[in-house]
Amino acid sequence: FVMGEDTSNPPEAVVPQLEADPYYKLIARIHVPIVIAVFIYIGWFVANTDLSAGGYIASALTAGYIGGHGLNIGHELGHKKNKLDQWLAKIVLAPAAYGHFFVEHNRGHHKMVATPEDPASSKMGENIYSFALRELPNAIIRAAKIEHTRLTKEGKNPFSLRNEFIQTLTMTLVFYIAMGLWLGPEVVPYLFIAAFWSMWQLTSANYIEHYGLLRQKLPSGRYERPQPHHSWNSNHIFSNWALFHLQRHSDHHANATRAYQSLRHFDNLPSFPNGYFGMFSVAYIPWLWFKVMDKRLVEVVDGDLNQINMLPSKQEKLVAKYQLTRQ
């Protein structure tokens, strides 16, 4: 918050150079072995150090934050077209037991974002805890279905290692079993606590990124193409540095293959009053989140109920409170 915002954009003339510059690719790729090494080291530490229960949990939560950072790296690399980056994405997702994200995010969330059918898009009136109970299991189910359908259509065995859902699940199982055999039963609670806390970082981001925003259905029955105004945006400098410009989410969803270093700010977008880390803290207190964001959402859509992805059970109350109409 103190460092403020940066709304500047790279000139379009230099974007091809930015996208091709190996420096930015290296920065993302080098985080993969760092995340894996730190996760393994903290596992070794908790298994070989006489810790109090609080010390053990604190160490596992620290690893969970590292795993959450790994999920963000996996997000960036998973959008790349080359096989190296795709495999690096799968590897860095493994410690968090969230490899299915590689499938679900690219071919599920990006397709259905800002619609009632998307478990990774939160609805107006939905708090982060009920959202997590809906999003976490449904993300796994959707990833499994996507890969089963893809391979079946291609005439291939969906129960083989060609299945990227099974691939990533196997990577996590091998990683966890190896850690258990090496370090013993003392490391097992660490693995589960760290994995859960890693997932919670991603769920926190998913919750805030599209809160209440809704794409319109076309006469054909399909949804309109994702536009920048279907995501909440933030230009806060510190958290954009930490998150590889994930907060410029509006441009990311409108142009999914655009690299983090060339993501753009657009004027008149749905915008957060703080960076992601600040907004996470607000989201964890539901009444405060609703107080801050519901009014902002209504202003963004100019009170048009047709542009709000709303929790059905809260619709009557919210329509009356904010005097929403169908325009």
Rank of each mutant, 00 (worst) to 15 (best):
Y176S: 01
L136E: 11
L161W: 04
H148V: 02
N206K: 05
T168N: 11
I128C: 07
N127Y: 05
I128N: 05
I140F: 15
R162A: 15
N163V: 01
F192S: 00
P137M: 03
T203F: 03
F131M: 10
F102G: 13
Y129W: 13
L191E: 00
P158H: 02
N127Q: 07
G184M: 05
P119L: 07
L181A: 07
L173V: 15
N138P: 01
T172D: 08
P119F: 00
A194W: 00
F196T: 05
R162W: 11
I146S: 10
P116R: 09
F192K: 01
M171P: 04
F196H: 12
K145E: 15
L133H: 07
V113Y: 01
E154N: 09
A143F: 08
D118W: 08
F175W: 06
M199Q: 14
W182N: 09
K145C: 13
Q167S: 11
V174Y: 07
I177F: 02
A132S: 12
L133V: 03
R134H: 13
H148A: 13
L191D: 00
M171G: 08
F196I: 06
A178W: 05
R162Q: 15
L136H: 09
N163R: 03
E186F: 12
F192N: 00
T203E: 12
P119H: 02
H100F: 05
A114T: 00
V188P: 06
I146T: 04
W197N: 10
L133P: 03
E164A: 12
I193D: 00
N127M: 12
I146E: 09
E164Q: 13
Y176R: 00
S130G: 10
I140N: 15
M171D: 07
S130I: 13
T115W: 03
T170P: 10
A143Y: 11
T203S: 09
F131E: 11
F196C: 10
N206A: 04
T203G: 04
M112G: 11
F131H: 08
P137V: 04
A144Q: 14
K111T: 10
R107G: 11
P185L: 09
K123T: 14
T170C: 10
L169G: 14
E186T: 07
H148N: 15
S121D: 08
D118Y: 00
F165G: 08
A194N: 05
E154A: 12
Q201P: 01
N206Q: 09
P189W: 02
E186V: 11
M124S: 09
K153I: 00
F101T: 04
E164S: 14
F102L: 15
M179E: 09
L181G: 05
R142W: 07
P119G: 07
L136I: 14
N127L: 09
A132R: 08
Y207K: 05
